[in-house]
């Protein structure tokens, strides 16, 4: 690590007195708030959630042990699978629509000689400062039929477009993907831009002199250099997508929308835990979700390791 050697050479008296080694209690005192809050507000609830997952509860006070029933019920619960399907659709939209756009914007911004880079970056980044609840409110009005901006503009540009297009009744997940696109495209762009700025310009020049076209330069020079950060962004985006909650919660005014077309896994967790009052079933949902997320995190780690070996 960074620390060279134990900082306790023989205590040679100095003119001012004696040498003071680093006091042992200092690091523990510095870390006390972290350790305390981690034990109380993380480790303990985590342990509780393991136990809760095997219980059925009615509010925070009453609980009955039900063994594996929460899990067996979960896998036969059509509403859960509906939520999984919706969440997966959103995750696919994030990774295959939003991230390529973020990377594209970052590559445009990374052009040598471009002026106004800071201004563009600022504009693209600004939406990610807006809280999810406020984005939800804004887009719930913008997606409104007839009066909402999205439909009036689409109808104005393509007169065939139905101004009553029911975004928040039928096309909920596409609407969510669009809202998230506006919200996160600049946020992810900042990471891609940071990665691209580390690609040595000489490498690109050399590849160009060797006759590599733009696609080949991207595939063989840029991509290998940005893979570590890019795969981190993909992972963060996936994990964030799997936990999608506040945006549809606000956009759909607390429910899953008509026919639960906007129900996500965490929304279902919230509904079972806080509306139905079964914190046990909610915990079981939480653990299945955590397992899924851990699998993605593990896959990314392996991917990075293989990339570094090559």
């Amino acid at each position: 690590m960074s620390h060279p050697a134990p900082a306790s050479p023989p205590a040679a008296p100095t003119p001012r007195g004696h040498y003071r080694a680093e006091p042992l209690w200092v690091p523990w005192l510095c870390l006390a708030p972290f350790i305390l809050t981690t034990v109380v507000f993380l480790a303990w609830p985590l342990l509780q959630s393991v136990l809760l997952a095997f219980k059925q509860t009615y509010g925070p006070r009453n609980a009955v042990w039900v063994g594996l029933e929460n899990f067996t019920f979960l896998f036969r619960d059509p509403l859960f699978w509906k939520a999984v399907g919706n969440t997966a659709l959103f995750a696919l939209g994030s990774v295959f629509v939003q991230l390529p756009l973020s990377l594209g914007l970052a590559m445009l911004l990374n052009r040598p000689g471009l002026r106004g880079r800071a201004v563009f970056r600022l504009v693209f980044f600004a939406p990610s400062l807006v809280g999810l609840v406020f984005v939800g409110l804004l887009f719930s009005l913008m997606f409104a039929p007839r009066t909402g901006l999205v439909n009036t503009v689409l109808h104005g540009v393509f007169p065939a477009f139905d101004p009553e297009f029911p975004w928040l009744e039928v096309y909920i997940m596409p609407a969510l993907i669009l809202a998230a696109l506006w919200l996160y495209v600049g946020f992810n762009m900042v990471y891609f831009l940071a990665a691209l700025q580390n690609v040595p310009e000489e490498l690109l020049e050399a590849a160009s002199l060797d006759g590599a076209g733009p696609w080949q330069r991207f595939r063989h020079v840029v991509l290998p250099e940005i893979i570590p950060i890019a795969s981190f962004v993909v992972l963060m985006s996936l994990l964030g997508s799997l936990q999608l909650f506040e945006l549809p919660f606000v956009l759909l005014n607390g429910g899953g929308g008509p026919d639960n077309r906007g129900l996500t896994v965490v929304m279902y967790l919230y509904q079972t835990g806080f509306i139905t009052g079964d914190l046990g079933y909610a915990s079981a949902i939480g653990w299945v979700l955590a397992l899924g997320m851990a699998m993605f995190a593990f896959a990314q780690k392996r991917f990075i390791r293989r990339h570094e070996e090559n």
């Binding site: 507000f41 609830p45 985590l46 967790l269 835990g273 914190l279 997320m293």
Partner: peptide, 22 residues
Amino acid sequence: LVLASLVIPGSLLMAPGYKLIH
């Protein structure tokens, strides 16, 4: 411990965390 806390999803703690606060 720091790194482990980073990867624990917040939604997993929602139900038991509420119970704890209660």
